[in-house]
Simulated scan of single mutants.
Amino acid sequence: MKRINVLIVDDDEGDRKLIRRLLSKSNFDATVYEACCTEESFALNLPEIDAIFLDYLMPGETGLGHLKTYKSNWPRAAIFFMTGQGDEDLAKTSIKFGATDYITKHAINERAIRRMMRNGLAQVEAQWRIDEQRRDLATFSEVLVHDFKAPIRAAAYLAEQIEEDITSGDMAAAIDALRLLRVSATQMQDMIQSLADHVRLDRDVTLSEATASDLCQRALLALAHEIAVSRARVETDFSQTDAPFLCHPPQLVQVLQNLVANAIKYCGDKDPDIRISARFDDGGKLAFEVVDKGMGVPKDQLDRIFEPFKRGPGTRELSGTGLGLATCRKIISRHGGTIWCNSEQGQGATFGFLIPAASTDPCTHAET
């Protein structure tokens, strides 16, 4: 069972202890955080929270008034609203404002906690996936409406040009226009493929064992042509990562392939020089790094380059859809990890990601 993080916000210490005790008896591997009021809970330096038990009435405030803030701070958390008195209107209002479930304090027991946690976590995860699919559909429509206009116009123009050239007997011009038409078709094909990769990550989540070295070799094999043409120098170091771990290999290969391809693409005016390494950290997580000596990323762009359609300044003339790094972030998030970039413009870049090297399903946010 995946370890989860639970936050209890209640001014009654006895109620907090009760919920903590019931959680420990309910077969949930939970790390529990406590706060006596909303202000204290927001001041805590907390990790990602999976479940929140929120008291309705506290001195000088109500938990209901802060539901939106809790949803904003921890959007993937199930929020269980608690009150000392049963009130159907309050229950409806709390659900309307974003609570996952509602319970009166006299009804809190081990069975109720187990049911709420099991159903609530599953409900929030299902809703998160629905919302993510909606965002993906919005991404899809944005690409179709915006990014496809230019290559479609180019293809239509080139088709007319070919027709005119053939009619006039200028076969050399027709052949040249046909070559450009193929380039435009390839651009649209690449755009569709990158979009499909970004949207369809949920369809295959079968886990299998792999090693860091094997994942890297598969990525480099897929990029053999690009590496040869660019005369890239690729150095690898997996001396500290011999042990296999459970993951979804095709998706992690895709991440490495994207990162190495970017290092080749954004090498600047010199041959690409790339170093790929991996190691297990003290917490048992697997850390990958892809280091290059290319164009680098401006500091003010580091937080944005993993967003869909965001590309660095000075890269307009280079091919790409702006979805590669967004897809990488999505894959690493599905594996329960994080991805980042450290760089300075003109000084190369280091892309790293950290994933749990465990046997639990990384594509499920919470197991019950």
Rank of each mutant, 00 (worst) to 15 (best):
D242N: 15
D242P: 11
A243V: 15
A243M: 15
P244H: 13
L246S: 07
C247T: 12
H248W: 05
H248L: 06
H248K: 04
H248F: 07
H248I: 13
P249Y: 00
P249T: 01
Q251V: 00
L252N: 03
L252F: 05
V253I: 10
V253Q: 10
Q254S: 09
V255S: 02
L256W: 03
L256D: 03
L256E: 02
L256V: 01
Q257S: 12
N258T: 12
N258D: 06
L259F: 11
L259P: 05
V260Q: 01
V260L: 04
V260M: 04
A261S: 11
N262G: 08
N262R: 08
A263V: 06
I264H: 09
I264D: 01
I264V: 10
K265S: 12
C267G: 11
G268A: 12
G268I: 09
G268K: 06
G268C: 11
D269M: 13
D269A: 15
D269R: 14
K270D: 14
D271H: 15
D271Y: 15
P272V: 13
D273S: 15
I274M: 11
I274H: 04
I276N: 05
I276C: 12
A278C: 11
A278V: 11
A278R: 10
F280M: 14
D281N: 14
G283V: 03
K285E: 10
K285W: 09
K285L: 04
K285F: 10
L286G: 06
A287Y: 07
F288I: 09
F288Y: 09
F288L: 09
F288N: 07
F288S: 09
V290I: 13
V290F: 06
V291F: 05
K293G: 02
K293L: 11
G294F: 00
M295E: 12
M295K: 07
G296T: 02
V297K: 05
P298K: 09
P298M: 08
K299R: 03
D300G: 04
D300V: 02
Q301F: 13
